[in-house]
Amino acid sequence: MPAKSKAQQKAAGAALAAKRGDIKKSELKGASRSMEKSMSESALKELAPTKRKGKPEHVSKPA
C-alpha cells in the first residue's frame, strides 16, 4: 500500500524511525504519532519508501 501523498510518506517515515528507536517517540506529533501507535513496523515499511515525485502534498478526504 503506497503512500497517497508526500505528507503521508513523511509521517510514515517519522513513525518508522520512532519504532526502530532512531528518534524518541515523544518527538512525534499528529499523524506520525498515531501511525506509530496503530501500525506495525512492516506496514510502515511499505509506506515510508514510496517515491514522492508526482504525489500531491496533501490528499483531501472524500466528501
Rank of each mutant, 00 (worst) to 15 (best):
A63C: 07
S42N: 10
E41P: 06
M35R: 07
H58D: 01
M1C: 12
A7G: 00
S60E: 08
I23R: 03
E36Q: 14
R52K: 11
K29D: 11
A63M: 07
K51E: 12
P49F: 13
K24S: 07
R33S: 06
S40G: 14
K37Y: 14
A31P: 00
K19L: 01
A31L: 09
D22E: 11
K4Y: 10
M35A: 12
E36Y: 03
M1A: 14
D22K: 15
A63Y: 01
G30L: 15
P49G: 15
P2Q: 14
S34D: 13
H58W: 11
V59D: 01
K25C: 00
P49A: 15
K55M: 12
A15W: 07
K6I: 15
A48T: 10
A12F: 01
S5W: 09
M1I: 13
Q8G: 05
I23N: 04
M39S: 14
K37A: 14
K53H: 05
S60L: 10
K29L: 04
R33F: 03
A17S: 09
P62Q: 00
K51P: 07
A15D: 00
L16V: 05
S32R: 06
K10L: 12
A31Q: 10
M35W: 01
S38N: 15
S5T: 10
E27D: 15
Q9P: 15
K4F: 10
G30Q: 11
L16A: 04
K29W: 01
Q8F: 00
I23Y: 08
L28H: 03
K51R: 14
G13V: 04
K25I: 07
T50A: 07
R52V: 07
E46T: 13
L47C: 08
G21W: 08
D22W: 09
A17W: 00
A14L: 13
A43W: 00
G21E: 11
L16W: 04
K55W: 03
A43M: 15
A17V: 04
Q9E: 12
G21Q: 06
G30K: 12
K29N: 13
G13L: 04
A17H: 03
A17E: 10
E41W: 01
K19P: 01
E41L: 02
K24A: 04
A3S: 15
K61V: 02
L44G: 06
S38T: 11
K29M: 04
A11H: 02
V59I: 07
E27P: 02
G54D: 11
A15R: 00
K37G: 11
K53W: 04
A12D: 01
A12N: 02
A12T: 05
A14S: 05
S34R: 13
K55E: 08
A11T: 10
S32W: 02
A15F: 08
A14D: 01
A7N: 08
E41H: 00
L47Q: 11
S38Q: 10
G21L: 06
S60R: 13
K55S: 03
A14M: 07
R52G: 13
L16S: 01
A31W: 14
A31G: 00
E46G: 12
K25F: 10
I23A: 08
K4I: 05
A14W: 02
L28G: 06
L28I: 02
G30H: 14
A31D: 08
G54Q: 09
L47G: 06
S42K: 07
A14T: 00
P2I: 06
V59G: 01
K61R: 10
P2S: 15
P2L: 06
Q8S: 07
P56N: 06
M39A: 12
G54P: 03
